[in-house]
Design a protein around this nucleic acid. Structure first.
Length: 429
RNA sequence: GUGGAUGUAGCUCAGUUGGUUAGAGCGCCAGUCUGUGGAACUGGAGGCCGGGGGUUCAAAUCCCCUCAUCCACCCCA
């Protein structure tokens, strides 16, 4: 019998994977909720027309779509932004600003590659219904807090503004036709360096590539960098306003203790961003971008016709987990159980059941061995699963109302009176 | 969508210039050890050598096609 193969780009999450993932997700959740964001969930399947929205084009390429048994043309969600737009159009009485987070699987029919799947979790956090810089600052702050909450220390939340990027392009005389590609190139600054950017820009025939590189390479404290750029872009009203906006966001986020930094080279690919854009980058380990977002004031309204301002970000759970694994922030625990009860011999079952109950009541996850195997087999099983402690209950223990607690790592074992089991068990958690 | 690579056991891979019944390690199952795991030993299951076509007396091996997977680009989480 040949084992059926798994679809490319999809993955099995075995206990070890799920335990780590659940841990990361619950940390993220608790940060989000501590900031007052509400959880929501929406269907994985939507009408195809809903998902293509009014823009169509690009989204069709990466979407899984098919006809269901009722002959409806449906598609799997490929992000959480389109569904939330539908929700905002449907439930217009939701009090605004509306702060919600949503962690769900989404699907993209793209070619998979390292760290990128066709089915993956997306974790979105957004604020709807306000254009206040405070809302942008709150998103920046929550990205920062989330990473801190997960235990990262060396990272930055980078902030830029589309107005700044466009101002730079305008000032340098980049024509409209090459604007989009130029921005994509500029965004690669940290990957290919200033020379690389200049080279690629020149290859595209972009004028004054050197000047662009000079402007986007400005680094340092926002208090210095922003005035510098303001000087360079003084002729561009929109860019100057954008810089003021960034200044406010950075100050507000900074006041909330966010690790925030202005980076004029940050672009973010999504064309729907209308204002500030964000990106969280890990420096240690050097994984790069683990979250991205920005303000998108024109997207949410596509289903209702009313403009609904929005700002938010999306965390890449898989990349975050990869990073945590790399620097040993996640232990590779393969089991939830802290104790496994091994029982055998005459009259041991009733005591085993009592023990399981007691240990569970003391709040410790306890696995009662439920196969038939001798003591050796049961211990082997515990060992293989990586359960840290076992409780041995045989004939002798049953007679004397005791339990043998064994530490699987050290091999030490201790005889415990059943009456004291609860107390001892709670130490094992 | 573009470019590159690879398909042999559940997994990682050997398999010589084409030559009999295709191998190893790990894993899996069973057994030895009869109240103590990670070990050892013994035995066992498991492969149309990705699929199709061609060359040849003879193909896992050479040629063509196809499918699948992986990596990079594009784009993004």
């Amino acid at each position: 019998m040949k084992a059926p193969q798994i679809l490319s780009g999809f993955q099995d999450l075995l206990p070890g994977d799920m335990i780590a993932r659940n841990k990361v997700m619950s940390m993220i959740r608790s940060v989000f909720e501590s900031h007052g964001f509400e959880p929501i969930e929406t269907p994985s399947l939507e009408y195809y027309e809903t998902l293509t929205g009014k823009e169509g084009g690009e989204s069709e390429m990466l979407m899984y779509d098919f006809t269901d048994h009722g002959d409806r043309h449906v598609g799997l969600i490929y992000d959480l932004t389109v569904p939330i737009s539908r929700v905002m159009a449907t439930y217009q009485d939701i009090p605004k600003p509306f702060k919600r987070y949503q962690i769900q699987r989404v699907y993209r029919a793209e070619r998979p590659q390292k760290g990128r799947f066709r089915e993956f979790y997306q974790c979105d956090v957004d604020i709807f219904g306000t254009a206040s810089p405070l809302s942008d600052a709150e998103i920046v702050s929550i990205l920062s807090d989330s990473l801190v909450g997960m235990g990262f220390k060396d990272f930055n939340v980078l902030v830029n503004h589309r107005g700044v990027m466009q101002g730079i392009m305008r000032t340098c005389g980049v024509p409209k036709e090459t604007l989009k590609e130029s921005i994509v190139i500029v965004d690669k600054l940290d990957k290919i360096g200033p020379d690389g950017v200049a080279r690629e820009l020149e290859a595209k025939g972009v004028p004054s590539a050197g000047k662009i590189v000079e402007m986007i390479s400005v680094q340092g404290d926002a208090g210095v960098v922003i005035p510098t750029l303001k000087g360079m872009l003084s002729g561009d009203e929109e860019a100057v306003q954008a810089l003021d906006n960034i200044k406010q966001i950075i100050e507000l986020a900074g006041a909330m203790n966010a690790k925030v930094k202005f980076d004029p080279s940050l672009a973010r690919g999504q064309s729907y961003y209308t204002g500030p854009v964000f990106e969280a980058r890990l420096e240690t380990p050097k994984i790069g971008s683990v979250a991205g977002g920005g303000r998108y004031d024109n997207l949410i309204g596509i289903f209702s016709g009313n403009q609904v301002c929005a700002t938010g970000a999306s965390l890449g759970i898989d990349r975050i987990m990869a990073a945590m694994r790399e620097i040993g922030m996640i232990s590779d625990t393969k089991t939830i159980a802290k104790v496994q009860i091994c029982h055998f011999g005459e009259g041991s079952t009733p005591l085993a059941l009592e023990c399981a109950k007691t240990i569970r009541e003391s709040g410790v996850p306890c696995d009662l061995y439920c196969g038939d195997g001798d003591i050796r087999k049961q211990i082997k099983y515990a060992s293989k699963k990586g359960v840290p402690y076992i409780a041995i209950i045989g004939e002798d223990e049953a007679k004397s109302s005791t339990v043998l607690i064994k530490n699987m790592e050290t091999g030490e074992q201790e005889k415990v009176e059943f009456s004291k089991l609860g107390e001892v068990a709670s130490q094992l958690a």
